[in-house]
């Protein structure tokens, strides 16, 4: 009997091996394991055997059945995998075809620069302030130590609305408002980014432009603090290797006053077209708040001191993004605007 069982098993395994798809495999299963299958049939013969042989016979047949079943299962897996793979292969797409268009918005380069500066200074404890763009002569000039008749405030350089109102020519106009408003005289740390206006329009000047102003006032604020702060600011904006050069200068609202040059980030200070071969680019005005400004706005200059600086944001944005013509910033051609659509480095 054992031979017979072995014979059937061998044949079954052989036939399984020789199938080529799920259908043939199923035929083989019916042939051996179905209700009328060969292995099912042989099991029925067990009743004809003497009692004591029955267990070993039963186990032999079951073992053969298991072996055949497991072989069928293995083969079935193989066919199913092959079938899926074949189907997937038939679904192959061209991954190089263009993607579905997802419209991206963009942020104006000037506001990008403003946000970058805001983030830096907010992290150092500065408040970002906003002031009126339509200012009074008092705040734009007089309270900044620029009395009427001062050469630096000729009528023709500003957009006056009445003799007492004008479009602010500098974000510094907010300085006096902050000082006047700070009744408790706690430390002031503020920056004021925003639009400013001058009565000129040509290839390198826009009548509307943007500045950022910083003001720090407390009891022991010195030039060394100003220098340290500007070093952080400029290295953050223009790179760690940026060098600063302070040139004594003159502004009515600061004393001492400085113009601050940065080492040319295009040539690293060797001299190129951008820096007009000097290696330096003039970027900021800065200084120690003039005692008259403190006095006029409710501060005792013998107790308090402060520093202020300001810079043009249009130029910073142009430097940062390699924009060569200031007019591009205000033309708002969507082909220009759309370029500023990703994260800044």
């Amino acid at each position: 009997m054992k031979e017979k069982i072995d014979e059937i098993k061998k044949n079954a395994l052989n036939e399984i091996e020789n199938t080529s798809d799920l259908k043939e495999l199923d035929n083989v299963r019916v042939k051996y394991l179905g209700k009328k299958g060969e292995l099912t049939a042989i099991l029925k013969m067990m009743g004809t055997l003497p009692k004591e042989e029955r267990p070993s016979f039963g186990s032999l047949v079951n073992k053969a059945k298991e072996e055949v079943q497991s072989k069928i299962a293995e083969k079935e897996d193989q066919y199913k995998t092959e079938e899926i793979n074949k189907k997937l292969e038939s679904e192959r797409i061209d991954v190089t075809l263009p993607a579905s268009k997802i419209k991206k918005g963009s942020k104006h380069p000037l506001n990008r620069v403003i946000e970058e500066i805001e983030d830096l200074f907010v992290s150092m404890g500065y408040d970002v302030m906003e002031g009126p763009e339509l200012e009074t002569d008092e705040y734009n000039f007089e309270r900044l130590n620029l009395p009427k008749g001062h050469p630096a405030r000729d009528m023709q350089d500003s957009f006056y609305i009445t003799t007492e109102h004008l479009l602010r020519t500098q974000t510094s106009a907010v300085q006096a408002r902050t000082l006047m408003g700070n009744k408790e005289k706690g430390p002031i740390r503020e920056i004021v980014p925003g639009k400013t206006y001058r009565r000129e329009d040509d290839a390198t000047h826009s009548h509307q432009f943007n500045q950022v102003e910083a003001l720090v006032v407390d009891k022991d604020i010195s030039f060394a603090d100003l220098k340290g702060t500007l070093e952080i600011f400029m290295k953050h904006m223009l790179g760690e290797n940026t060098q600063l050069r302070f040139r004594p200068s003159y502004f009515p609202f600061t004393e001492p006053s400085y113009e601050v040059d940065v080492s040319c980030f295009k040539c690293g200070g060797k001299g190129c077209n951008l820096c007009k071969r000097t290696g330096w680019i003039e970027l900021l005005g800065a200084g120690i708040v003039h005692p008259n400004v403190l006095k006029m706005n409710g501060y005792d200059p013998d107790i308090y001191s402060g520093f202020a600086f300001g810079t043009g944001l249009d130029r910073l944005a142009m430097f940062k993004y390699g924009i060569t013509d200031i007019r591009l910033l205000y033309e708002n051609d969507v082909r220009f605007l759309s370029q500023f659509d990703r994260m800044d480095k």
Partner: peptide, 9 residues
């Protein structure tokens, strides 16, 4: 998906 502008006052 909008582009930010900066216009004249």
């Amino acid at each position: 998906g909008l582009n930010e502008t900066l216009s004249y006052v």
